[in-house]
């Protein structure tokens, strides 16, 4: 096992593992967001559970943070190494003849997601950490104590059309990233043979439907609150 990250295949494998974790997390995040459309109450309670459960906060959250950081740092490392592997570019290179746009631009769609995550952390994660671990308020209640604060905070954030616009664009980039990434991750861990033919269609569905779902939820709250 020693030095597996020093080999090209080891790096590929580690990249795929972090990506798998992110894709599972995305599904879980989506499942919770969906509840906000149907019941403010369920959304509040699930959010409070996730925000105060020790296993989630002290085990899964650090793993998630590590995966995100590992994933984009390794993404940069791969990109730099791969540029070094061809120092003189072609005068004419017809990449579209043999590969998808998504597969050739993972670093750019990834960077767009990273920029979005900066905004997303600023919107939700930093205030959350501040309230809970710096102010020490673990109650999850509104300032006037009239109920849980999570749903209100969400509605408040999605008032701004600019923010909602940025969210929508970011999820288009996520969909593009996943349209290549989902199946790429399976290939990286060696799962490409006669048993995995059905995965391709499933990957496409995941890559389009999950980001689309997030977009619909954001738009729903935006227009629902305005009207």
């Amino acid at each position: 096992m020693s030095g597996i990250l020093n080999s090209s295949i080891g790096r590929k494998f580690a990249m795929a593992l972090s990506a798998f974790f992110l894709m599972i997390f995305l599904l879980q995040h989506f499942a919770i967001n969906v509840t906000s459309v149907f019941s403010a109450n369920t959304f509040n309670e699930t959010s409070h559970f996730m925000g105060t459960n020790a296993l989630v906060q002290y085990v899964f959250q650090p793993i998630l943070l590590f995966s995100v950081v590992f994933h984009f740092v390794m993404g940069f490392v791969l990109e730099i190494k791969n540029r070094k592997a061809r120092q003189i570019p072609y005068a004419k290179n017809n990449g579209a003849a043999n590969s998808s746009w998504m597969s050739r631009n993972m670093i750019w769609t990834g960077l767009a997601i990273l920029a979005f995550m900066g905004l997303h952390f600023y919107d939700f994660w930093f205030p959350e950490i501040n309230t809970k671990y710096i102010q020490g308020d673990m109650s999850g209640l509104l300032a006037d104590g009239s109920g849980y604060r999570y749903f209100e905070e969400l509605q408040h954030k999605f008032l701004s059309p600019v923010r909602v616009g940025i969210y929508v664009v970011a999820f288009v980039f996520l969909a593009l990233h996943l349209l290549h990434g989902f199946n790429s991750a399976f290939q990286s861990v060696g799962a490409n043979n006669k048993y995995t033919k059905g995965l391709k269609g499933f990957g496409k569905a995941y890559a389009i439907l999950i980001p689309l779902g997030f977009v619909i939820i954001a738009l729903y709250h935006h227009f629902n609150h305005i009207s």
Binding site: N6, S7, S8, I9, R11, K12, L78, K81, N82, K84, A85, R86, G95, N98, S99, S100, S103, R104, M106, H180, N183, S184, Q187, S188
Partner: peptide, 18 residues
């Protein structure tokens, strides 16, 4: 073989399929 491949300076596969 993989060790030699890496030492020769080939890049890392990202499964573009080209």
């Amino acid at each position: 073989m993989v060790k030699q491949m890496d030492e020769e300076g080939f890049g890392n596969c990202t499964n573009t399929g080209a």
